Simulated scan of single mutants.
Amino acid sequence: MTENVWQYGETNSRSQGIDLSGFKVEAVDGNIGKVDKHSDEAGSAWIVVDTGVWIFGKEVLLPAGTVSRIDVDEEKIYVDRTKEQIKNAPEFHREKHLGNVDYHDELAAYYLHGAPFGGRPF
């Protein structure tokens, strides 16, 4: 994963400008849901995944740096984290956290260095 967790790696740069909404999202150990919303803004790129019944209908925000590959033809996004790591990430609430710098810092620390905010480290 890139050291700047809020930007896509070079291999995913061709996805910029493509609407990723509805793409399936795959963790290293299986499907976690579909993209509900995304941003490819430089330095603040992310995807919001609707997890459906997997974690009781919640949404999760994944920084672009967790994305290992985007398959535009298959409409799938692959992330380099397990379902458990994603489930243990700091809780996401759309109204409260989109654009919130403190939340972005907390999430970046979690995905870059383990889980200093209450979860288990990777």
Rank of each mutant, 00 (worst) to 15 (best):
Y111S: 06
K37P: 00
K83Q: 15
T82K: 04
K87H: 15
T51F: 00
D73W: 07
K87P: 10
G30N: 03
V60P: 06
G114I: 03
K24R: 09
Q7H: 07
A45H: 07
H104Y: 12
T51H: 09
G30V: 04
G99P: 12
R94M: 12
G17D: 10
R94N: 08
F122L: 03
E106K: 13
G9M: 02
D71S: 14
Y8R: 08
E106M: 13
F23T: 06
G17T: 04
A115H: 03
L98E: 14
V67Q: 13
N4M: 03
H97K: 09
E59D: 15
I55K: 11
K37I: 07
R81H: 14
Q16W: 10
K96D: 14
K96Q: 13
W6S: 02
I86R: 07
V53H: 09
N100M: 02
V25G: 06
A109K: 10
G114V: 02
T82H: 01
K37S: 12
V72D: 14
Y111E: 04
Y103R: 08
D73I: 06
F117A: 07
L112F: 00
S44Q: 10
E10M: 11
E59L: 03
D71G: 05
M1D: 12
D40M: 12
N4E: 11
T2A: 09
E106P: 00
G43K: 08
W6A: 04
G118S: 11
G17Y: 08
G43E: 13
S21T: 15
D105L: 10
G99R: 05
